[in-house]
Design a protein around this nucleic acid. Structure first.
Lengths: 199, 199
DNA sequence: GCCGGCATCCCTCTTTCGGGGGACGGGAGA
DNA sequence: TCTCCCGTCCCCCGAAAGAGGGATGCCGGC
């Protein structure tokens, strides 16, 4: 089980240990630790937070799955832009639990994922459907978007990325088209809400 | 003790009950419940999350302090824009604990605040100092800023707020001046980071 | 071998922003 | 009272931004 908040880990342990057939075999505070501990303990299931220092939950999932293809992985997510969830799914997660859920939400998810089923709450599934209404941004576009979020003008972005202002404007056209927005400011807020970039 | 996440509440209870001289007398899942339970139980200390549904932590603090001026209040905050922290302080909080902190961070804070001292971690104090480097936005300015965050053009904002475009531009000038930024997009990101607006 | 997506460059034109100034009524406080 | 801040309106002007076109080279998949 991995989460960077000590309080949350304590809560999870308390909830899980209350079930006679469930045991927490190891606790990690970041993604890298999670990967190491998984290899050492080979648990029936990994419960991972997505936002963690050192190595993100998504990265941890990828590494665990590449080394142990049979690993069962349940993601614990708080606010989570849809982008994070989609990435975690692509990385190989089998289920999601929202941090706001009660023990009655968590325990069945653990049992389901451990026994080989998937577990995707309806609202998470809905957000994934919404997510599909826009296309994926290319790495270059995300790079440009990050600069825009920092308040840079097209000319400045062109200078830092060593391209012309024309190209920056083209990327921006593409970004706004994909996100279905008309101005750069909204492109930034939409991207933040979807978890494409962070502030 | 109040937090909207069941898992967090469970963790807090576990950590606090482990101390022989500390007891959790009541748990609330939102701000309104927190105010009610405080009035019923009159605890030595209230441990409150800032971001809660129904009624925010800050509102809860205000109401508790206005009814029970001697109430001792410790705030539990996760990421927290500086604005939230400053508001909580003005509302009458006596201390702050970061959600990432361990039991060794939480317990001394509880004891300190309960016994009448303040408890402000160094990094929180630093952020407050940073916060003072910009002036407070007026209600009208925040209203304009919210529209800007939604991607509205000055002309559109003027229409929805029933003022002229000149006035919108003037507010925007003032906003950018106060936040020390040069373009509207950066004004939005700066305001979000500081907790002045949300997305 | 062709097609699509990515990244790049280029041009034009209209609209919007952003910065500078000036002005006024109203309310809160020294 | 006088002053400061808020909210409002107004003007000018240069610099961005956004929308429309067209064009090239490269890579990977069918």
């Amino acid at each position: 089980m991995a989460d960077d908040h000590f309080i949350v880990r304590t809560g999870l342990v308390a909830v899980i240990q209350a079930e006679s057939d469930l045991t927490v075999v190891a606790e990690a505070a970041d993604g890298a630790e999670a990967v190491n501990l998984f290899a050492r303990h080979r648990p029936d299931l990994a419960l991972l937070d997505l936002r963690m220092p050192v190595k993100s939950g998504t990265q941890a999932i990828e590494e665990i799955r590449s080394e142990f293809p049979a690993a069962r992985i349940l993601v614990l997510t708080a606010f989570s832009g849809d982008e994070d969830i989609a990435k975690a799914l692509r990385a190989g997660a089998h289920g999601f639990v929202l941090k706001s859920s009660t023990g009655e939400g968590l325990i069945p998810a653990i049992r389901a994922v451990a026994s080989g089923d998937a577990w995707i709450p309806r609202d998470v599934a809905t957000r994934l459907a919404v997510r599909q209404s826009y296309e994926e941004l290319t790495p270059r576009e995300i790079q440009v978007l990050r600069e825009i979020a920092r308040g840079k003008a097209n000319k400045e972005i062109a200078a830092t990325l060593a391209i012309t202002e024309y190209t920056v404007k083209d990327h921006l056209k593409s970004i706004m088209g994909k996100l279905h927005v008309a101005v750069r400011t909204e492109a930034v807020t939409a991207a933040v809400q979807r978890g494409i970039i962070e502030l």
